[in-house]
Amino acid sequence: MTAAAPADQPLRAESAGALSAKRPLGDRSFQIIALAAGLLVLVILVLIAATTTDQATSWFTKEGFSGIFSKTWDINTSHFGALSFIYGTAVTALIALILSVPVSLGIALLLTEVVPRRWARPIVYVVDLLAVVPSVVWGLWGVLVFAPWLMGIYTSIGNFLNGVPVLGNLFGPPAQGTVQGTSFFTAGIILAFMITPIITSLSREVIATVPTVDREGAYALGATRLEMIRGVVLPHSQGGIVGAVLLGLGRATGETIAVALVIGSSAQITSHLFAPGYNMPAVIANQFSEASGLQRSALMGIGVLLFILTIIINIIARGVVGRSARRGRGT
């Protein structure tokens, strides 16, 4: 980009300058159409915020701040608090990050630092395949194959840790009524599979910007590969990796269908990770079609909260990624 800048100057002067008045009509209208298409992005984002908020107003006004952030989600008494869904979103996203980040970083480092280039390509294809499998197929596999298999593991881990302080509260045995191993933790694992390709490919790009000279310098000082990674690669690419992880977090927060199938659809706040739960996108997906009145407004409102949350995460992530990418290029 920097190299192209000087050559670009005369073009920009021509497009923005006094000549524009004399340019033919077709030329000017093309520019306006292109601008309109660009502005469409902003228009859509504003309209998303405006229309969904409008639909959610009756929930916001009826429940008020404390009602929105309360635990009760009861259709019979018409009380709709979003707290258990917010909790579920936070827990599942956190589990997904804890599982996915070390694995993604491991693969990214393997690809950039260990494996020869001609091997790296097929490995990248394989990891990208994870992103090609549609969300609903992860969900189908998750609920029919993976969760029933996990149920046995959950039960043995739960029985082993039962009564152990802290760990016993987190990984207690799943309740007898639990359907086929659907739980916060199952949702977290499925999410981890889904965000791994994103975190891997972004951190790989960042790591690839580490100057070879720095690497060679570390090796010349006698560093092993691990010491070189810790001393050179990680400090250099820290910012970009944080951005990649945040983008993965954004995806984990908004991912809907796979989670809706494996989380267990039970609105509760519990420390037991093997217990069924609910999160924000899943409750919208499961209940919106049959909802009406205040419940529909509440689900729309959860959508608004989710939109704000993911927009904030993504703005921070893009900011961090953009800054570290510019630094990586040395500008």
Partner: peptide, 23 residues
């Protein structure tokens, strides 16, 4: 616009469903 377009890729797909439903 470029920045917000990148941010828009992170908007959850279910939000797009709710948006088109409302509008």
């Amino acid at each position: 616009i470029g920045f917000m377009s990148d941010v828009m890729t992170g908007v959850p797909s279910i939000i797009m469903g709710l948006f088109i439903f409302s509008i």
